[in-house]
């Protein structure tokens, strides 16, 4: 191959074995897309609905309120729950913004930016949830040792504070682990194809 001009000419001359018929092309249009970002928004709606339905799904939901009240944490409990809803609503709004913006007809740069913004929002959502869960658990845990007669009783029965802390820490770690795995499977499935776009976006920026 001698030069670029010749390369261009040959490029224009290339043919492809595979030529789909109109029937085949028509069939493609009916197939399912692997479009990821819209699913992230739908998932957040599903999550919100499950969150809203929790009091109905769990018969003992309100019993925990009485326990928090006994620890003088009723207000804190309500505050954290409201924060949980606010967080979810805020991220739903962000997912919706991306959902609205995402379109394959945008320029490659705009498209890459929206995809990266979605990835960022999903990971921030995960960390914000974990943070909220940790703060809540920590506060309830400390207060329980100060005010819960059963726990104070355990201490008196020579079960060390360290041992109880370890067990509770382990339970929290397992809960967080399950949350992480669920998150990975549910959202990760849709995020996987969106990886590695950052490098490409950087390449487009002068």
């Amino acid at each position: 191959m001698k030069d670029l001009k010749q390369l261009k000419e040959q490029w224009a001359q290339q043919h492809f074995d595979k030529q789909y018929s109109k029937e085949e092309l028509n069939g493609f249009l009916q197939k399912k897309s692997t479009y990821s970002i819209k699913w992230i928004f739908y998932l957040s709606i599903a999550e919100f609905l499950i969150y809203m339905a929790l009091p109905l799904l769990s018969p003992n939901y309100y019993e925990s309120f009485a326990y928090y009240k006994s620890l003088d944490l009723f207000g804190f409990n309500i505050f954290m729950r409201v924060m949980g809803y606010a967080l979810l609503l805020y991220f739903m709004w962000r997912f919706f913004q991306n959902y609205r913006k995402i379109t394959v007809t945008a320029s490659v740069k705009e498209h890459l930016s929206t995809i990266l913004s979605t990835r960022k929002a999903v990971s921030q959502y995960f960390y914000a949830n974990v943070g909220l869960l940790l703060i809540f658990t920590l506060v309830v845990f400390i207060r329980s040792f100060q005010m819960d007669a059963n726990l104070i009783g355990l201490e008196q029965e020579n079960i060390s504070f360290l041992m109880i802390s370890f067990i509770i820490g382990l339970v929290v770690a397992i809960v967080l682990g399950i949350y992480g795995v669920l998150y990975y499977f549910v959202y990760g499935r849709f995020l996987k194809p969106l990886k590695r776009n950052e490098k490409e976006l950087k390449q487009l920026n002068p």
């Binding site: 692997t34 479009y35 990821s36 394959v104 007809t105 945008a106 490659v108 498209h111 890459l112 995809i115 996987k192 194809p193 969106l194 990886k195 590695r196 776009n197 490409e200």
Partner: peptide, 9 residues
């Protein structure tokens, strides 16, 4: 190109 670069992975 958008589909190839970003969605199809």
């Amino acid at each position: 190109l958008n589909t190839a670069i970003t969605l199809y992975r």
